[in-house]
């Protein structure tokens, strides 16, 4: 349960962060997967989270989205505490409805796409437009097609996910998240489940989003992409933020031994 010292909302800053986390920790049984993480995301900022497998990157993203409830600390989205509320000095879990309200500015894309297989690409995109935003079928279809066009898949609107390639599925998943007009996008290893040849088409869509000013947090193993697109890179290991900074600094002058080691291993694998 988050501690009492984290009940207060974040102090106003010059440019208020859209997503802010203070001292969040998470345990799975006896295993501490996140330890005292502070995080802040400014509007239009692109943050890439890198690190070895099991370092807690995805768990951090899932805690920021409250798909995994954090045990300690606090997460604020647009200044509103996510997942908990203060009742007579005690912090208690909020309702799922309240979680949805606070989390509304956030869209998320998953490693394994998680498209609904019984719905076509267009239906995947329009489902929430109809159910959550209350759009008519015609309005939702118009918006859905526009979203699919944005990711270059309007011609696949009537296809079921099973007949799409991995890259196409991920682009539909991006269109589905974008359809709800999020102000922040979370990407959880969006290219890790793809064939190397299909990675580029997804990264191109993400680059375009970044160029359009979308605020993004991207958990990724694509170092080249992180170096080109990120405003800031966070390196995590064993549930802690080891180092963070602009990609040029982080990749060229890593301070910590662990990051040097991680980058050397990556270079050996990808350059040699």
């Amino acid at each position: 349960m988050p501690t009492a010292d984290t009940l207060a909302p974040p102090a106003p800053t010059q440019q208020r962060a859209i997503v802010e986390a203070h001292g969040i920790s998470k345990q799975f049984g006896d295993l501490e997967v996140l330890t005292n993480i502070d995080f802040s995301l400014a509007p239009s900022e692109v943050v890439c989270v890198i690190g070895p497998s099991g370092s807690g990157k995805s768990t951090l993203l899932r805690c920021l989205a409250f798909l995994e409830p954090y045990d300690h600390g606090s997460v604020y989205i647009d200044g509103q505490l996510l997942g908990y509320e203060d009742r007579s000095g005690q912090r208690v879990r909020t309702s799922e409805k309240r979680v949805d309200e606070v989390r509304a500015p956030v869209g998320m894309v998953f490693q394994h796409f998680h498209l609904w297989p019984h719905r076509t690409a267009l239906e995947n995109v329009t489902e929430a437009l109809r159910l959550v935003n209350g759009l008519s079928r015609r309005q939702a279809d118009t918006e859905g097609i526009a979203m699919l066009e944005q990711v270059g898949l309007a011609d696949r609107a009537g296809h079921f996910p099973e007949s799409l390639s991995g890259g196409q599925k991920q682009r539909v998943a991006i269109a589905r998240a974008l359809a709800m007009k999020p102000r922040v996008m979370f990407f959880d290893e969006p290219t890790s489940a793809l064939d190397p040849e299909l990675v580029g088409e997804v990264l191109d869509v993400m680059k375009k989003l970044a160029a359009d000013g979308m605020t993004m947090v991207i958990v990724t193993h694509e170092m080249g992409f992180a170096a080109k697109v990120a405003d800031r890179v966070i390196f995590m290991d064993q549930g802690r933020v080891v180092e963070s900074g602009p990609p040029a600094t982080l990749f060229r002058q890593p301070k910590s031994e662990r990051l040097q080691q991680f980058l050397n291993t990556w270079r050996e694998r990808h350059i040699d």
């Binding site: 409805k97 949805d100 509304a104």
Partner: peptide, 27 residues
């Protein structure tokens, strides 16, 4: 039905009831 499909629905703001009726039951 993979849990991730429901997480995707939750992230889009789809209520548990709608997720049940529109995503889980048809599959």
């Amino acid at each position: 039905i993979p849990k991730g499909q429901l997480e995707a629905a939750r992230m889009l703001g789809i209520s548990p009831w709608h997720a049940l009726v529109r995503i889980q039951i048809p599959q």
